[in-house]
Nucleic acid binder design. Structure first.
Lengths: 354, 354
DNA sequence: GTGAAAGCGCTAACAG
DNA sequence: CTGTTAGCGCTTTCAC
């Protein structure tokens, strides 16, 4: 059994001396029931500490609405904030929130989505950039179609819809604009040799940032060769390693644009270990403005992506207008938060040609 | 309906030209079925993209095992790690993991536990210290009893069992020992005026740390008045505010023991804003060793509490030996990780009497 | 007003 | 080997 000694509606009915139908009516509260019986039933339920069986309820149709979030990991500050946003907004609407993590494994993602179909989730939210290959497109198209045919909806947060007529709602940040802006900030400070640390070719979020970075460079009249992208991927460890190598091999840059704040953390550490100072010797900027970015040394100038708002928006939009929401694309804005990790390049190194 | 167009087992049966029982049997795989029919059924299920209805399954007994974690918030690095541990261990066992957040509100905690009872969760894990008052004790006793009578189990992570014979499993860190050790570390460096920042009277985790702090002081032959506990509560903002005030009013201390790493982050910032340096002017230690603690300025010396392991242990122990596990108390060890935020007190201030 | 009864989709006897 | 059937706990017509 689902639970050995669980109290059922029948026992409540017996104790209250009414039928199960009456108990159901009282508990659902969607049907007029005279005050007298009402209290009798309530008292019985209270006494037995009765809780309804959610599965039975779901089976017959009145189930609790469920939203599922799928992320790579909850320990990433950024993902955690998105999850919190989803959870908070879901709670607001009285929905239940399921969280699943995949560790970045497409197989586990698939299993989890399958599981959510079984559980009857009405909303499945996939969070985070991915490498967008054919396998991905096919997989997501399948999710969307399967979910849709069961009356559920798919939301992609920060990852692209594989096909415009796939019934999926896309909500993401304007990565390209954000990257363009922060690169512009570096440019304005006088930097010309800026390396982008943390590329991840195929990953849509990172690719967009790289695009924005290149666009800003070009917009400033710099030649395409001025761009220097290091494809080390994300994470503090990657940033630390890549920056260390870069410092040894080709230190002819004055600023670093890290793919996200964790990469920036690693880069900062590498620079410190090399005996250099930020921002005096090298300027560094990040992306996302995670909660502890201002506790880095020095406090990090970065792009603020309101992650919790992303999560909230995802469920809000999906719930607000189901029909219209499908197959639409929502872009959330970002802005720069200036702290202490950017300064003018050191005198001898500014404007130095390639 | 639970979902408009959801494919049911009956449709699969029809398409495969067998009975629903047969379909159920091949899908469950717990009953011998000849290869021929087996493939026919599988093919039909595949073609229809059938997924079983988890609620119907749960209703009849074969439901998926579910574990629920309840935490204050997922954006706290520490809680996030615990949640990740629970999720990972649950996934290992093929269990589903539900995450609920309360924002610290007992009312929401109660609602969530109720919800988990409805959902038929077999394991409910409450994470994080709380203020232990009569209301709390009563509430938890009720959870435990209700869960137990439904064949489910309650696990308290980092919070005390209200009563030894309440059927709840307790798994937590030895806060007192950890606090004693790190205070000892400060003492060994020569500090005698150490303030504990982040007390939260009634909160069992913090109270234990304060006890460890006092014990270490006493063990070093210092009088009880040497202890100075600032009850500012947890969080970066609290640490920042409290430290700022402290620096203005009573700067006669040489080291700070922050209740956790977030408080330490705030304290560090306050000290920097006051124009003082860590560890030259003031030493600072934290608690928990969150992932970014080494990116603070300076890298923070702190107590490592393996949070993910706490989460894993909670489910592992609960699952391993249900009978024995109930009403037992498990203490997980911690250790100091030394980084750069502690030094000897500045010459003029060491050993200065009260 | 309230009860009896028909399922929701599935599994597990129990027959055949 | 496979089909029939009886529920799991609940909501919801449909009668009384």
């Amino acid at each position: 059994m689902t639970a050995q000694g669980r109290v059922t509606i029948r026992e409540v009915a017996e104790r209250a001396g009414v039928s199960v139908a009456t108990v159901s009516r009282v508990l659902s509260g969607n049907y007029p029931v005279p005050q007298a019986t009402r209290t009798r039933v309530l008292r019985a339920a209270r006494a037995l500490d009765y809780v309804a069986n959610a599965h039975a309820r779901a089976l017959v149709g009145g189930g609790r609405k469920t939203v599922a979030v799928v992320l790579r990991q909850v320990t990433s500050p950024f993902y955690a904030q998105v999850a919190e946003g989803v959870e908070a907004e879901a709670a607001t609407h009285g929905w239940l929130c399921l969280v699943g993590t995949t560790g970045g494994d497409p197989q586990r993602e698939l299993e989890f989505v399958q599981l959510m179909r079984e559980e009857g989730a009405r909303l499945v939210i996939l969070v985070g950039g991915v490498v967008e290959d054919d396998a991905y497109r096919e997989r997501v198209a399948h999710y969307a179609q399967a979910l849709a045919s069961a009356g559920a909806r798919l939301v992609l947060c920060g990852r692209p819809a594989p096909d415009p007529d796939i019934p999926a709602l896309v909500v993401e940040f304007d990565n390209e604009a954000g990257a363009r802006a922060i690169t512009g900030h570096l440019l304005s400070a006088g930097h010309r040799r800026i390396v982008f640390l943390g590329g991840l070719p195929g990953n849509t979020a990172l690719d967009a940032r790289v695009r924005g970075y290149r666009a800003a460079l070009a917009g400033h009249g710099l030649p395409p060769e001025a761009a220097h992208v290091v494809d080390c991927g994300l994470g503090r460890a990657a940033g630390l390693r890549a920056m260390t190598e870069l410092l040894e091999e080709r230190p002819e840059f004055t600023a670093v644009f890290a793919g996200d704040d964790m990469v920036a953390a690693g880069a900062l550490r590498a620079i410190a270990e090399a005996g250099l100072r930020v921002p005096d010797d090298i300027s560094v900027v990040g992306y996302n403005d995670i909660p502890l970015a201002e506790d880095f040394h020095p406090p990090l100038t970065t792009v603020r992506t309101p992650a919790e708002e992303l999560g909230r928006a995802a469920v809000r939009i999906a719930l607000r207008d189901p029909e219209q929401a499908a197959a639409t694309h929502h872009l959330l804005g970002t802005h720069i938060v200036v702290r202490d990790s950017v300064a003018a390049p050191p005198p001898g190194r500014a404007h130095r040609p390639t």
